[in-house]
Each structure stands twice: as C-alpha cells, then as structure tokens.
Amino acid sequence: MTRKGSLADAVQRAFFFLLGRPFLAFFIGLRIKGRQNLPADFPFLLVANHTSHLDTLSLLALFPLRDLWRVRPVAAADYFESTKLVSTVTRTLFNTLPIPRKGFTAENHPLKTMGAAIDRGEGLILFPEGTRGMQQKGLAPFKKGAAHLVLERPGLRVVPVFLDNMGRSLPKGAWIPVPFFCTISIGQPRVLTGTPEEITARLEGEVKALSAESRPGRPV
C-alpha cells in the first residue's frame, strides 16, 4: 500500500497547509537559513539536534506538500506507538517511521527498517541524540545509528541541520508553546566515509558548527 495519494497523505497535507505552516510562520516566526542546501531529490538522511516536538513539525514544513508522503521522521516506537491513538495521530500527521529504541531483534532492527526506507527512495529525518534534550544544556553525544546506515548505503547524502530555540518554545513536558523566534540552519549535504566513530564525530561537528553560526557570539 502506497502512502502517496492516500487519505492519510491528504490529511497530512491539509494539516501542514492549514495549521502547521501558518502556526510556524505567524506564531513561531520561523527563520530558515541555508534553504538552498535542502535536497530536492530523494533519498537522503537529515540529521538534527532534538529539543522539542516542534523539531519534526518544522523540518517537515520545509518540504513541498507533494513530497510529504516520502519524508519519514524516524520515531521511537516506545513513545509514539504507546497507544493506538498516539500511533494513529503521529503516523497520519507526521508520516513517522517507527523504530524500537532497545531490545530489538534482527527482524525489527532499526538499521533494517531505515535501510529499507532509503531503498524505497524515502528521505529520513533522524535525531541522533536519541531523545529530546534541553536547549539550555546543549547537544548530547550522537548515537552511531546514522553512521552505520551511511556505511550500509554508500553514497547516501547526509544533511546536517541545527534547530534553534525549539526547546525553549516547547520543551519536553510542556504542552503550550511560547512564541520564541526559532531558526532552522541547514548545512550542505555530505557524503561521508570512515569508521562509525569518525562519521558520528563528523556529523556532531557539523551540527555544532551550524549552532555556532546560528547565534554568533552568544551562548547556546
């Protein structure tokens, strides 16, 4: 069953057109730096820092509505599949790609799920910190999943992204957003090689560099 042209796809498009984008433009005042770096063709792997539920919303809002069916935010199954309601809502509105965070088998291994999505020509959004951190505390160490995926799919383009202030607008545990100006800084797509440790360090460095550019001379 394909997502393209399905009811879920139509609902997602309507949601982003009528609610998501106006909310980000007029309430959050989202600013986008480096939009030209956003890949127009698929597949790709987008990696970003993670401080808020707004992260996924704003990253998806970057893409043309007609491409949303093949942009897949990688989501922790233990959180986003916890109940039937949460699962239906996130799958419909955000087109999530659920993966287990621990205790996985060869069958439901995250690398297998993500690799298959890349093979289908989908763009993945991955938060390598593994969970939402606190904006004020800075970046947590990246997990190595992105690096392993890159090694299994040579030539896969990786787009580093830094999301600024999302965690101040809607931090973990909060349900009412505060309209801080938020910024998305998109870095140049990279094709990376090396050991998993090297690739992970490189990605962390790229996101950190974008964060330093995002607010020059000021503490993150």
Binding site: G29, M134, Q136, N165, R168, P171, V178, P179, F181, P219
Partner: peptide, 26 residues
C-alpha cells in the same frame, strides 16, 4: 504587542523553569 514581546523574550536568557510564566506573560 505580541510581536514586540516575542522579539524581547527571544533575547532573554530564560531558564527551563520559566516556561509557565512565559505562557502567562503572553
């Protein structure tokens, strides 16, 4: 006023604990 306050608080070094008070301010 909404836009002006938004410009101001974005510059503030707010703490995570300020969230509720920020909502109240808006």
């Amino acid at each position: 006023s909404f836009w002006a306050l938004k410009e101001f608080i974005t510059l503030l070094p707010t703490r995570p604990a300020d969230h509720g008070a920020l909502v109240l301010a808006f």
